[in-house]
């Protein structure tokens, strides 16, 4: 009992995760800046931003539904943190594990998007409403390729559990190479989930101010931004486990190091991707997802089905 509380709250749960998320945000921003030939922020900038926001007054718009407006950010943060607890990090075993946890993790990572929608919708500002409708529209476009990309890897391992999935890939090293197209699809779709360029349509600054976040300020905005950071780490951890399942179950220190490197690699890929493209329009984004990402993901599924028949009897 006491032990699992420690796991949930301190390590690798909330406190570690939040600290790591802030570092990941720093790395993301620093790489983004260096790619643009700028100096970038100092290492404590994300923490300083959070402290500054936490110290500010919470302003709730008079017309909004105050309860929904306040609950949505906390709900989003909680679900993003929970998702992390189910992902095996440097062992094949996670803190909690059961059959079908891969689906649960994927849905827990979808909850923040829904919470952003609810928060934006109930703040009743026009910019927020447009932004939240956009985030929901976008959800239907990127969620399908993301799920297909990740689940194709699970399909090859023939399991719905992350524990069994990692055990399968440990038993069959180099099989993860087959999933690389799926990794590409999942990574690009992830940009939509994290609302980053080219898919930062729901919070497009020059169009709708900050989209669903427009009316938020102070602590609540701090939570929302923290949610995006935690989501980035949790989703990167999921991608790292599903697509790069190696270096697990070895010396804990070395394993932990490999895990950190894998996550930071994915974070830097995200930073690179958002540096080299412009923001798409919502119609172009949906077209892109359904016309390019989904077919590639389907091909990946097909490939894995064939491989399953050929290699694993």
């Amino acid at each position: 009992m006491f032990e699992s509380l420690f796991y949930i709250i301190v390590f690798p749960g909330m406190i570690f995760l939040i600290a790591f998320a802030l570092i990941a945000e720093f790395i993301d921003r620093k790489i983004y800046a260096r790619l643009q030939n700028r100096v970038g922020p100092p290492w404590f900038q994300p923490l300083a931003d959070f402290i500054k926001l936490a110290g500010k007054e919470d302003i709730v718009p008079a017309d909004s539904n105050a309860r929904m407006f306040k609950v949505a950010p906390i709900f989003a943060l909680a679900s993003a943190i929970t998702a992390f607890l189910y992902i095996p990090l440097w062992k094949t075993e996670a803190l909690f594990s059961f059959r079908g946890d891969i689906i649960v993790v994927l849905y827990l990572l979808t909850v923040p998007t829904l919470a952003f929608f609810i928060g934006g919708w109930y703040s009743t500002s026009l910019y927020s409403r447009i932004g939240s409708v956009r985030s929901l529209t976008q959800l239907f476009a990127y969620e399908v390729p993301l799920f297909m990309g990740i689940l194709s890897s699970a399909l090859l391992a023939d399991t719905w559990s992350l524990k069994e999935l990692s055990e399968f890939y440990m038993a069959h090293p180099w099989f993860w190479m087959f999933n690389l197209p799926g990794f590409g699809v999942a990574l690009v779709s992830l940009l939509g989930k994290l609302e980053k360029v080219p898919f930062d349509i729901p919070e497009a600054e020059t169009e709708i101010v900050a989209g669903g976040f427009t009316e938020y300020g102070g602590r609540l905005l701090g939570f929302l931004r923290m949610t995006l950071d935690v989501e980035m780490v949790a989703a990167s951890a999921l991608l790292a486990l599903v697509f790069f399942p190696f270096g697990l179950n070895i010396n804990p220190v070395l394993g932990f190091g490999i895990f950190i490197i894998k996550i930071l690699f994915i974070v830097s890929l995200i930073a690179l991707l958002r540096t080299v493209v412009a923001r798409l329009r919502i119609d172009q984004m949906i077209n892109f997802c359904w016309k390019f990402l989904v077919p590639v993901a389907l091909l990946q599924l097909l490939l894995n089905l064939i491989l399953k028949g050929l290699l694993l009897k």
Binding site: A33, R34, L35, Q36, N37, R38, V39, G40, L272, T275, V276, V277
Partner: peptide, 22 residues
Amino acid sequence: RPGKMLREVLGSVFKKPATNLY
């Protein structure tokens, strides 16, 4: 070509930042 700026952007990592630390 998507990502046309990729090469320039990656090259910047090894360059000194243009920012003047005022």
